[in-house]
Amino acid sequence: MLNPPPYLVKMKKYVVTLVVILFSFCAVAADEEGAFNTKGAAKRSCSEFASTYSEQGSKTYLYGGWLEGYITAFNALQQKTFDITPWQTTELMLLMLNKHCTDNPDQKFLDATNIMLQAFLPTRLATRSDIIEMSINDSTIYIYQSVLDMTTDALKARGFDVDMAESEFNASYVKAITQYQQIKGIAVTGFPDQQTLVNLLLVPIK
């Protein structure tokens, strides 16, 4: 059995809230009658996926591979969309889908996926964005400039002081992210990591 990354285990309490938010959307059919052929994981039910996910075996990655291919097609066919998931990792999306599918076992895995992607539309990249390198000590991540801008706006909306000269990653940004992580009680990395992005970009300000 494969163990999930530690950060995913810590994120589970946030996923419960997110699923309520994300899956309040309705699935959109491909045509007026909703008739189209499906391949691979699209033929599976939510209960089948949830069962496979709970085992955390190699079959889980088959769903991940299908999901990545489906998202690639979505990006190619959806208008005004360069990337529907500009920061969401496959692991995070599978975690979200598992929670939803556990609660809705009779739903099709394809429908659950479509609902999730529709919920991601507000934070999609409509056009191509530069990818920038962010380094702190010996750690480095790569992130779209547009996502960095989104997080900056989200931090400012929550009252954090961020001085982003020319939208560059700098000490002011790291300080704001670190303070936000400390307040939220999540892992303090100084980076806009998955757990931080979930809270900043998907969870509404209360």
Rank of each mutant, 00 (worst) to 15 (best):
V188I: 15
T72F: 09
D193S: 06
Q118K: 11
G57D: 11
A29F: 00
I136G: 07
F23Y: 14
G40D: 08
Q79G: 01
F74P: 00
V147F: 03
G64S: 06
E133I: 09
V20M: 04
L8D: 00
E48K: 14
P4Q: 09
E168P: 00
T152F: 01
G159D: 03
T38Q: 13
A29C: 15
R44V: 11
Q88D: 00
L2C: 03
A73V: 10
S135T: 15
T60G: 03
Q79Y: 02
G185S: 07
T140Y: 10
D163W: 00
F169M: 10
Y14N: 03
M116G: 00
P192E: 05
E133N: 09
K175L: 12
A187Y: 11
V198G: 00
G57N: 05
N98G: 01
G34T: 05
A171V: 14
N98V: 03
I136L: 10
R158W: 12
G64N: 07
G57M: 07
I186L: 12
V9M: 12
L202S: 08
T38K: 15
A119P: 06
S167Q: 07
E55W: 03
A41R: 05
S167G: 05
Y61S: 12
S146C: 00
Y7C: 02
F109I: 04
E55Q: 11
R128D: 13
I71Q: 01
L18D: 05
C46W: 09
A41Q: 06
T152L: 11
K10H: 04
D31Y: 01
Q78D: 01
L95Q: 03
Q78V: 06
V198F: 12
T17L: 02
M1W: 06
C101V: 04
P122T: 05
F160V: 11
T81Q: 02
I205Q: 07
G40T: 08
S54R: 14
L121C: 00
F36K: 12
G40V: 11
A27I: 13
D83A: 06
T113H: 13
T90I: 03
L202G: 06
C46N: 10
I141V: 15
Y173M: 13
W87P: 03
K12G: 04
G190D: 05
Q179R: 09
A41N: 09
L148E: 05
I71F: 04
F169A: 07
F36D: 05
G34K: 06
Q88W: 02
S51L: 13
D153C: 13
L155C: 10
L67K: 07
G190A: 11
K13Y: 08
G57F: 09
K175V: 00
T140C: 12
S47E: 09
C46I: 08
D138Y: 11
S146T: 04
P4C: 12
N170D: 08
H100M: 02
S129L: 04
A187F: 02
W66P: 06
V20R: 15
L77I: 03
S139K: 14
N199G: 02
Q145T: 03
Y173P: 04
P192S: 00
D161F: 03
N199E: 14
